[in-house]
């Protein structure tokens, strides 16, 4: 974080590439600052983030929205796993 960002109190997740995972009601998942998708099945998604990999297990997983930094996954999420590299 630079001095400028600290001075103006800019939120950390906006300026850095720290991954952020938000789960909404076990069926909607928002991954911010992802890099790329390693594997995609409808029961298992593996996403590469900056500091590691996130494994998502579930049923009928669907990537409803994909932008440069954000990924929204819908479906019944059963478990989430983090692999720190």
């Amino acid at each position: 974080m630079s001095k400028f960002d600290k001075l103006f109190e800019i939120p950390q997740e906006l300026v850095s590439e720290i991954p952020k995972v938000t789960i909404l009601g076990f069926e909607k998942l928002l991954l911010e600052n992802y890099k790329y998708i390693l594997e995609y099945q409808d029961v298992f998604i593996r996403v590469k983030m900056k500091f590691g990999i996130i494994n998502i297990y579930g049923v009928n997983l669907e990537m409803i929205e994909m932008t440069k930094d954000d990924l929204i996954i819908m479906g019944t999420v059963e478990s989430i796993e983090f692999e720190k590299l």
Binding site: Y36, I37, L38, E39, Y40, Q41, D42, L61, E62, M63, I64, E65, M66, T67, K68
Partner: peptide, 27 residues
């Protein structure tokens, strides 16, 4: 190599949405 295709699209700023796996090799 569908994942590779998706990542390439993302890098070139072609955005896909409503992605759903139909069979093991079909998206």
């Amino acid at each position: 190599y569908i994942e590779k295709f998706i990542n390439m699209c993302k890098r070139k700023e072609i955005f896909l949405w409503g992605i759903r796996k139909q069979k093991v090799t079909v998206l």
